[in-house]
């Protein structure tokens, strides 16, 4: 039941963070020099007189700042992120329509980076000074230093232009009927390059982390105990060591989730992936301020939810945290 208390307390904190994001968003709009109504209208509607009046009315712009703010916070909490004056539809609908592809991209990349990274790390830890260890060290350096869009372009040049085995862009071929198994296959096929590009930043980094923690753990007293029990090397590595080695990887991956989300914005624009990133980019070019602010809020929302989930997952993996009152 202690676990339930933790869940409730963490959720409450997550909610407060969310509230802070909403306040931050509105304050940001307010800080932009010039008329806030014009900021909100942006270049989208050509800013006709009726639109301006509409904006002033719906945002309550004739009221004092704190009244406007409370109104905004209240509306956002009810799921009303305003309207896109470019598409003339509620921002929330726009976002929910684009959420799926983004989550698919981000979550697949993250899982790939964590699983492959940990696996590589385990392999490398068997020979701490072997070729494979040096390989992942160099790979991590490259992954950190290469701009993600450039990595994506290089992969496109190789796999699309030269080898011609992978598709250039999009979620699926336009003629494939959505929902059929061919379509799912096609999506998976289109997903390969974006996912590889995005996870390239993190994969090698997690390998190094997993390698270091595996080496630490393999020299630890409880691994010696496991050997003294007569356990085989495989059980020792995959049962006793791996579970401990994954903990720091999960911690870092949790902390980096918002960065991975950021990377997805760039990757989506490179591959014309119809997700939130492309929407954000296009909305910025169109000056569609309500959509931009809606996406900023919603991304933070996704990150907060994800952090909450990692936090809880972490407690399940590590009993020391699960059963302690701190943190």
């Amino acid at each position: 039941m202690q676990f339930l208390t933790v869940v409730i307390r963490r959720s409450l904190y997550a909610f407060l963070l969310l509230l802070a994001v909403i306040v931050f968003n509105y304050t940001l709009l307010f800080l932009v020099p010039g008329d806030i109504a014009e900021t909100i209208a942006g270049e989208s509607g050509g800013a006709s007189a009726e639109l301006m009046a509409e904006i002033r009315r719906s945002y309550g712009l004739d009221q004092p700042f704190y009244v406007q703010l409370f109104g905004y916070v209240g509306r956002v909490l009810q799921g009303d992120l305003g309207s896109s004056y470019y598409f003339n539809v509620p921002v929330l609908d726009l976002i929910l329509g684009r959420l799926g592809p983004t989550l698919l991209l981000v979550v697949t990349s993250l899982l790939l980076a964590i699983f492959t990274g940990t696996l590589f790390g385990v392999i490398a830890s068997q020979r701490p000074n072997g070729i494979f260890s040096h390989f992942i060290t160099i790979l991590a350096l490259i992954g950190f230093s290469a701009p993600v869009f450039w990595t994506a372009f290089l992969l496109i040049i190789l796999f699309v232009s030269m080898l011609q085995i992978l598709p250039l862009s999009g979620l699926a071929e336009p003629l494939t009927e959505s929902g059929t198994w061919q379509w799912y296959l096609d999506v998976a096929y289109h997903l390969i390059l974006p996912v590889v590009s995005l996870s390239s930043i993190y994969l090698a980094q997690y390998s190094r982390l997993a390698r270091a923690s595996m080496m630490d753990i393999l020299g630890s007293d409880y691994i010696r105990t496991a050997r003294a029990k007569g356990l085989g090397q495989r059980v020792i590595i995959y049962k006793h060591a791996l579970r401990n080695a994954v903990i720091p990887v999960i911690t870092i991956a949790g902390l980096q989730f918002s960065h991975i989300f950021s990377g997805a914005v760039v990757i989506e624009t490179v591959f014309s992936w119809p997700g939130l990133g492309t929407l954000a980019f296009e909305s910025i070019l169109r000056g569609d301020t309500p959509t931009i602010m809606g996406i900023l809020f919603f991304s933070a929302f996704v990150v907060i939810i994800f952090n909450l989930l990692t936090d809880l997952a972490y407690r399940i993996v590590d009993p020391r945290i699960r059963l302690s009152n701190t943190a």
Binding site: T225, A228, G230, L231, H240, N244, R320
Partner: peptide, 26 residues
Amino acid sequence: RMREVRGNEISMIFQEPMTSLNPVYS
């Protein structure tokens, strides 16, 4: 054969009880 011997015919306990047990298993 040594794996059969260890923990079965010859067992060992160590100096550091604080760190000799795996933290993630009961």
